[in-house]
Structure formats: structure tokens, C-alpha cells
Design a protein around this nucleic acid. Structure first.
Lengths: 143, 143
DNA sequence: CAGATCTGTAACCGAAACAGTTTCAAAGTA
DNA sequence: TACTTTGAAACTGTTTCGGTTACAGATCTG
């Protein structure tokens, strides 16, 4: 299981995309996510490093989205906030004196790489704009 | 990041496939994995439930592989030992009074499902036999 | 049957990862 | 100047996981 950072990051960016008029404070965003503003600022820091948002201090400050949602791929968001390595190897190295132990991690590395690439590629096929469309479709449904 | 269970389970099964003559004790397997025999027995319990190995108590006991490695797909092993849900949602539910918070998890669910399916499908394309081949290819290389 | 071996399972421990929290310096506004 | 907000460091509490101990039950051997 990954951290919840990817889910929260998409949430944060979706909120920014829905309210592009003015900068959003971390406090406001935290109210939607139901978490502490510092948690939001930590994620915004990663998204800022990735060039997706920009921030301003002080009154009337906050953060704004600086990418077109329709061209912001979920794979980019994933990579911006999640650590590399989705599937975990052995916690401790296996026995190097065993023919299997000595080589199993090398054999698994290729498998893991392909599997993770497949997941990323799936996220590559969707954009923040798609998420916004899903939100709106959902909003249109009867309660 | 997932647990290391998938990596260790493949290790355990590869060892069984390489030594099909006699049952392997959890102590012996633990020596290759470099862990405690109980950790191995826990995983063997899951693999037994999944119909991949069988076990016998007592002297001359241990576990044997009861599936053809060439037809044992890595996706089966993954599902046998890892919990569902690779990508995590928010740890706490978002604010239901916010239009985004109320619906973001529904919108993300479809995304997560597709991404995880893509990963599983990648594992579906490889078998324990492929891992054995990789181990042998590696063994043939000069040190 | 007695004794040894091995599995299966429950219970507990320690380490690591994370989200949440507090605090404060620095940037920016009015 | 007084106020707001970000950015970042530091610490806490919770959860997850692998490692460990302990022991009942099954199985083989003499």
C-alpha cells in the first residue's frame, strides 16, 4: 500500500482547478481535505518543485495552479509526491551463499520494473481534467 | 510501497521449484531467505490456502510445490500474499460538505482500479518458470 | 509407546513510515 | 507597524510489518 499522498495531491489540485480565480490558502484546502494545513503545505511544496503550482506569502497569499488541467497527467502527480519503488524487495538481503538467494533479487528487479511501469502508464492515460469531469458527472447525479 | 511478502513468496516458491525431490522444512527455506522460520511458515500458509504448496508435519516433513512452475503466474502469487488496494485513499474521509471533498474518492476509485489492474496484468504475463529461467541465466554468467 | 521432528498459530516486540501537530522565521500586504 | 500566510524543522502518536517466542498438534522412527 502506498501513502495517501497521491490521493490527497490529486484532491488538492482538483480543488485548485475548480477555483482558479484566487490563490487558495493551505487552511482553506485543509478544510476540504480534513487535515492539518501543514500537511497540505508539505504536499504543495512537492507540487511546487514539480512546477504545477506557485505560492505567495502574506495576506491575499496562497497557491495557484499553473498548469492546464487537461494536460496535467496523473502520472506526473504520482511521481511528484510518491517515492520510487512500489513493490518491495526483501527487507534484509537473502543468503548470498544460496544459489536462489544470491540471484532472486536480480531476477525480480526486471519483473518489478515492468509491473510498476504498467501502473504508471495507466496513470499516464488520465489527466487532472479527467478527474474534474468525473467530479462534475458525479455532481450531476441525483442524490 | 507494498510489504516484502510478494518478493519473499516468489523466493520461497522458486526454491521449492529448484528442489522438487523432497519436502523443504521452513528452517531450510528460512536459511535461504535469511529470516525466521515462522515468517516462512506464515507465507507458506497463504500459499497453501491458494493451492500452490502442500505441507506435512513431523520428521521428513516440510512443504512441496504442487503446481507446475510454468503455469503458475506471478499475479496468482501476488494475490495470494498481498492485501487488496495498492494505491491508498485519504487516511480520513474528506469534508463531505465540500463539492470536491464529497466526491473525490469516488472519482479516484476508478483511476486506482485501472492502475492496479494494469500492474496485475503485467504480473499475469510472467510465471514462476520465467523466474527460474532468469535465475539460471544469471547463474550461467561469469562471476 | 516414547521421543524426536516439524507444522500451524497465537501473542508479543521493536523498527519504520506517515500523518498530524507545534513552533517559528521569513515573505508579503495594508 | 501590525497582520497574514508560506516554508521548514522538530516532535508525537498510530499503524503496519517482520522478527521472535512459545506451544499444541501431527507425524515419523525405534
Amino acid at each position: 500500500m502506498t501513502s495517501s499522498r497521491f490521493a490527497v495531491a490529486v484532491h488538492i489540485l482538483a480543488l485548485h482547478a475548480m477555483l482558479p480565480e484566487e490563490p487558495l490558502t493551505s487552511e482553506f484546502v485543509a478544510g476540504s481535505v480534513c487535515t492539518n494545513p501543514v500537511v497540505v503545505r508539505r504536499l504543495l511544496g512537492l507540487l511546487r518543485k514539480a512546477g504545477m503550482v506557485e505560492a505567495r506569502s502574506g495576506p491575499r497569499g496562497g497557491s495557484r495552479l499553473i498548469r492546464d488541467p487537461k494536460e496535467l497527467r496523473l502520472s506526473e502527480i504520482y511521481r511528484a509526491v510518491e517515492d520510487e519503488g512500489l513493490l518491495a524487495m526483501h527487507r534484509h538481503d537473502p543468503n548470498p551463499a544460496c544459489p536462489v538467494g544470491a540471484r532472486i533479487q536480480g531476477a525480480l528487479a526486471a519483473v518489478f520494473e515492468d509491473a510498476e511501469a504498467a501502473l504508471i502508464q495507466s496513470l499516464e492515460g488520465r489527466t487532472l481534467g479527467d478527474v474534474l469531469s468525473a467530479l462534475e458527472a458525479c455532481a450531476a447525479e441525483p442524490a
